[in-house]
Design a protein around this nucleic acid. Structure first.
Length: 486
RNA sequence: GGUCGGAUGGCCGAGUGGCUAGGCAGAGGUCUGCAAAACCUUUUACAGCGGUUCGAAUCCGCUUCCGACCUCCA
């Protein structure tokens, strides 16, 4: 591998050579889901993207501590610092305890992540499990003079912070523009500045999820959990902080301010943001009502889908676009990914059946370099996949006897394909256990060949057609007959 | 309204100042008993208008259209 890993840093708006603070250790924090309803496919894309990043960093030999939180407290409905949090509201709707909601959707989230074959993070802290740390952080921010309490609610003083620090460092906007364009907030708001945001929020007596604090009973504000938990598990300054692009302007901007106010240090060296999944060009979101739920995809039970698509097809579909590009979702696009994914996996399976030649007419070393160059260029999975399809063509050619590979090249190719397809892209074969089937298929293929030899095409075609109906496709070639599930 | 980012062939999507990713779909061929699969060949492109340049789809400007953020959101 010649090239160095480059990552796009939202802070500097350019690609930078990746240099961890304490190599080979890498600390990575990714903002996880708010577990008050089912994750939709847009959420999943972010976590699949960071799974790719996590996997590739590990593949390069980095020892990564990957922290992804579960938000189970504190997010408010609407734009006011009052009212129920999402969990309480949802709990009333479903007549459940708030923590029942949390449990239900956390389990659902984990199941979906498992189906997408994402590696679990090393630490998955929850907001409710770190109330003490959040209170401690709020205290320190107050001590630094950058937060103030009004009536049991603590606010961050953005304008005061902006005197010494660049509040809009992530999005590069002018503070004056923000001040001029921030929407007028309604009614009972005690904060001094329009941009000030709540660190701790006073809870009404009937509020179910609330904790004691130096400022009375309340619950943590919108952004403090990530600052507190990333500090606890990764330190004041760590390597990568990631999340969806929609979090940059508000959530991450405020996180940086909180961490700076508390620790007097940049929380993260590299800020990485994944782009949105769109449907017909519009962002997929719950509020827009155009969200796809993973299970709707896996069952095909959705008006825009013609059939079910497997988790690996969807993962492959996501990886065929760069993580910083929007990706437009459609039945047609999924159909294309489904076929491409199957073609790729068929070739991977064929790797073990290739004949060895005395010489090679394909340079695996070059291919390998191009694969790593693609991934080193800010995790460019679509280019990597394009290179892998070149390998697919070579594999099929060799199997057809039209190209040849010697033992060394073949070994290199096997290792490369296995590493890229399974370890880096995180794809997995979806064929169910078929150890039993192999013997039966061998028998059927032999019977068919015997019938063909006798020119009994009625019988041979019947075998082929019947298997087709059972979802098994026979593939004839000069080297014999193989089969695949369709 | 403010800020930012897009516009690539039938669809999804990379990329680059000159050597025109990739997948799917379409066309032709090889193979096959016929197919399928596979392989080979191949048709549709870089929103529009100017400018810079020997050369631009790639850089600059303008226009049109679209999106994201500015409010919880991956």
């Amino acid at each position: 591998m010649d090239s160095q890993l480059q990552v796009y840093n939202t802070l500097t708006r350019q690609k930078e050579v990746f240099k961890p603070i304490n190599p080979p250790l890498v600390g990575m924090y990714v903002c996880g889901p708010t577990v008050y309803s089912d994750v939709h496919l847009g959420n999943c894309r972010t976590f699949v993207s960071f799974d790719l990043i996590y996997r590739y960093l590990q593949h390069l030999g980095y020892k990564v501590r990957y922290v992804r939180n579960i938000t189970d407290a504190g997010h408010l409905e609407g734009d006011r610092d009052e009212g129920d949090d999402k969990f309480t509201k949802k709990a009333k709707l479903e007549q459940l305890e708030p923590m029942e909601i949390v449990q239900k959707y956390t389990l659902g989230f984990h199941e979906v992540m498992r189906l997408f074959n994402t590696l679990p993070p090393n630490i998955e802290p929850s907001a409710t499990g770190h109330i003490t740390e959040q209170i401690e952080m709020v205290k320190q921010i107050i001590d630094s003079g950058l937060a103030y309490e009004v009536n049991g609610t603590v606010y961050f003083d953005v304008e005061k912070y902006s005197k010494d620090q660049n509040y809009t460092i992530l999005t590069n906007r002018e503070l004056d523009d923000l001040l001029a364009n921030t929407r007028e907030l309604g009614g009972q708001d005690d904060k001094k500045g329009r941009l000030d945001f709540a660190l701790w929020i006073k809870a009404k007596p009937e509020h179910l999820m609330r904790w004691p604090s130096p400022w009375g009973w309340g619950f943590p504000g919108w952004h403090i959990e990530c600052s507190a938990m990333s500090k606890k598990y990764l330190g004041d300054t760590f390597d990568i902080h990631g999340g969806g692009l929609d979090l940059a302007a508000t959530h991450h901007t405020n996180e940086i301010a909180q961490s700076q106010a508390c620790n007097h240090a940049e929380p993260a060296k590299y800020w990485m943001h994944t782009n949105m999944l769109t449907v017909n060009g519009t962002r997929m979101s719950k509020s827009a009502g155009n969200g796809f739920l993973p299970f709707e995809l896996f069952t095909g039970d959705h008006p825009l889908l013609s059939r079910a698509y497997s988790p690996m097809t969807v993962r492959f579909f996501m990886l065929q676009a760069h993580y910083r590009s929007t990706l437009d979702f459609s039945n047609e696009a999924l159909e294309a990914s489904d076929k491409g994914f199957k073609r790729l996996m068929s070739a991977v399976h064929l790797l073990d059946k290739l004949p060895v030649a005395g010489s090679s007419d394909y340079n695996v070393q070059d291919l390998s370099k191009r694969c790593y160059a693609a991934m080193n260029d800010d995790f460019n999975s679509p280019v990597l996949i394009a290179e892998l399809f070149e390998a697919v063509r070579v594999i099929n050619s060799v199997y057809d006897g039209k190209s040849k590979l010697n033992l060394e090249s073949l070994d290199q190719l096997r290792q490369l394909m296995k590493a890229m397809v399974f370890d880096v892209l995180g794809l997995q074969s979806e064929e169910k256990s078929e150890g039993d089937l192999t013997a039966i298929m061998d028998l059927l293929i032999r019977l068919r060949n015997e019938a063909k030899a006798k020119q009994d095409y009625a019988t041979s075609d019947q075998i082929r057609m019947s298997l087709q109906e059972l979802g098994i496709q026979l593939k004839d070639s000069k080297s014999g007959t193989t089969w695949d599930k369709i």
